[in-house]
């Protein structure tokens, strides 16, 4: 088979920086929760979780370096789940 892939090597340093960012966001979300921002607590926590998962997907899981197909499909899967949750809530929000 053709061997077009596996040329990109991610540096150790990159991973360390990503980990630091991830840990920072984890502690931030814990800190925000203790502040008691009311309804914004959940949105803040989920927003940070979203950023964290984006970092994991792009760097740890190499979506940034791989073929675009994987990134597009991964985004579609999250979009699909989002749509399903949205449509389900059309029932629960207006019942």
């Amino acid at each position: 088979m053709e061997k077009e892939q596996h040329t990109h090597i991610v540096k150790y340093k990159t991973y360390v920086f990503v980990l630091i960012a991830l840990l920072f966001m984890t502690f931030t979300s814990v800190a925000i929760t203790s502040l008691n921002l009311g309804p914004y607590t959940v949105s803040a926590a989920l927003l940070l979780a979203g950023c964290k998962s984006l970092l994991v997907l792009l760097i740890f899981m190499h979506l940034k370096f791989d073929k675009k197909f994987y990134a597009i499909m991964a985004a579609s899967v999250f979009l699909l789940l989002g749509c399903v949750i949205f449509i389900t809530f059309l029932d629960y929000l207006y019942r």
Binding site: V84, I87, Y92
Partner: peptide, 21 residues
């Protein structure tokens, strides 16, 4: 993928969900 609710029109879903589906 997004039409599943038409199996549930008499289940007591919200009106909004009914129209959408």
């Amino acid at each position: 993928y997004f039409v599943w609710g038409h199996h549930m029109f008499t289940s007591g879903m919200s009106g909004t969900a009914l129209y959408t589906f």
